[in-house]
Amino acid sequence: MKRMVATKYRDTGRPSKARTLLEVWFANMSAYRAEIVIWMLTGSIPLIMLAVWIGKAQAAGGAVGDFTPQRFAAYFLAAWVSQQLVVAWVAWELDLQIRQGILSAKLLRPLDPLWEHLAMHVTERLVRVPLAIIVIVVGLFIVPGTQLTPDLPHALLYLLSINLAFLIRFLIAYCVGILAFWFEQAIAVEELYYSIAMFLTGSFAPLDLYPVWARTIIEWLPFPYVIYYPVQILTGEANGLEIVRIIAVQLAWITIFGVLRSLLWRRGLRRYGAVGA
């Protein structure tokens, strides 16, 4: 049978999808600014660890290994900011949408729901910026002599790297959320990720202080590329070719999880279509 086509209209310009999604979601996220501040404070492990490690450094006569209080301060402030910038709750969002059937309404639209989730996350980040700046200024003031970043190129490369880090984290969370197509308790995996990531991303301590065997294993996982390595770039610990390597590995992880997410999504939709939407 002949296919129908939508009525053709003279094209008088149409809004860009990306811009509209970002504008509207920014408005939506702004409605949640108070909640977002509270969520930011719950993600404060690096700040607590900063106090712990400085205490330890002082007790040990000024430094732990090569780490002075100033170096700790730079590391954990950068880690805290990074953690703020890579937050992803899309697993919860998907879990809810899949289990309660809200996904159906989204599937009726000719757009992969991924893009809306992405817009949601990106705009939420912007709402976090003002408080993040305040925390950094206060932090730098409390530990005098702390240098967060050596120069502008490092800061700019950090911006690139932390956005890639966010994509890694976002895609991991997306894959976990998709598991809700099969398991009622998919979100437990997300909880597990959260507790593991705490240790493996470098939020608790710089990976330099980990035992060599642990460090060797961690290097082969995506986790250090979410917090630790972007922090290395910002604080000027990583330079030149090392920065290129970090970004290349980040791109590789994005590709891996991007492909995995597409595969899971396609299979998940088949299951959704089979057992009920």
Partner: peptide, 17 residues
């Protein structure tokens, strides 16, 4: 109105339509 704008963009509806 904001939801409508999102749908306009997603469905690629030209402005005059």
């Amino acid at each position: 109105l904001d939801s409508f704008r999102v749908n306009q963009a997603i469905y690629e509806i030209p402005d005059d339509e």
